[in-house]
């Protein structure tokens, strides 16, 4: 058992008078996919953004053994902590090629991997990212991250709003990525979680309500229903 790549301890966030995170504590393993789950509005995205320093937070975050809370976002990213945000956040006015060029952080970015995984992006290099479909935009968002060597990926709801066929291919790509880099994945689609995740953490009202093996959670219909508000069969296809 290796040391975890990310340790979050007592993470608290207050925004506009409301206490959104109230001492969130969990570890992310150095291999595989750790799923961060919970109903809408329990603070999953806030947790990621607090780890990244996008919003002010208290508590402790250790990345690869080093305390990083309070560091500026771009420094963490340069340290190999990559982020695929909710709603893709591609730059709509920039072309696909420009979106990728902007994300380059190293002298020899891995375009071979990107073009192998997403041949479509190579063909659409000169197209404005704003005119792409949701699935294509998600490809750009993931590709931006894969150009660079990473030590941990934070991925926020990559399958949200995508057609079922696209969900499957995005999940397949994430599965391949996770073979090399650990991933902290926020996801609502339990089928994707079932397919990818080794560990799972469930947030409820700003606190960790459950953590353990993903199979233990999804295998327990009662726990799944009470924690996530859905039957565990909902994710079975």
């Amino acid at each position: 058992m290796t040391a975890p790549i990310l340790r979050v301890a007592g993470l608290s966030v207050r925004l506009g008078g409301s206490h959104i995170l109230q001492g969130v504590t969990f570890d992310v393993a150095a291999t595989g996919v750790t799923a961060l789950l919970g109903r809408n509005g329990v603070g999953k995205t806030t947790t990621l953004r607090a780890i990244l320093g996008e919003i002010p937070a208290e508590g402790g975050v250790e990345y690869d053994g080093v305390p990083v809370l309070g560091r500026r976002t771009h420094r963490l990213i340069r340290d190999g902590l990559a982020y695929v945000p909710e709603d893709r956040c591609v730059f709509a006015g920039l072309t696909v090629a420009e979106n990728l060029r902007l994300a380059e952080r190293v002298p020899n970015p891995d375009y071979r991997l990107v073009h192998e995984l997403f041949p479509e992006l190579e063909a659409r290099a000169a197209q404005r990212a704003g005119t792409l479909s949701g699935g294509q935009q998600q490809m750009v968002a993931v590709a931006r991250v894969l150009l660079n060597p990473n030590r941990l990926l934070l991925v926020d709801e990559p399958t949200k709003g995508l057609a079922p066929a696209v969900v499957t291919s995005v999940a397949a790509v994430l599965g391949r990525v996770a073979e090399r880099v650990p991933v902290l994945l926020v996801e609502q689609n339990l089928a994707v979680v079932r397919k990818l995740a080794t560990d799972a953490i469930v947030l409820e009202a700003g606190r960790v309500a459950w953590q353990g093996r993903a199979t233990d959670l999804l295998g327990d219909a009662e726990a799944t229903r009470s924690l996530l508000g859905v039957g565990s069969t909902a994710g079975r296809h």
Partner: peptide, 14 residues
């Protein structure tokens, strides 16, 4: 140009 669209995302690219 990217920053005019979304500053936070530019930081999130390092």
């Amino acid at each position: 140009r990217a920053g005019v669209e979304n500053r936070a995302m530019v930081s999130a690219l390092g």
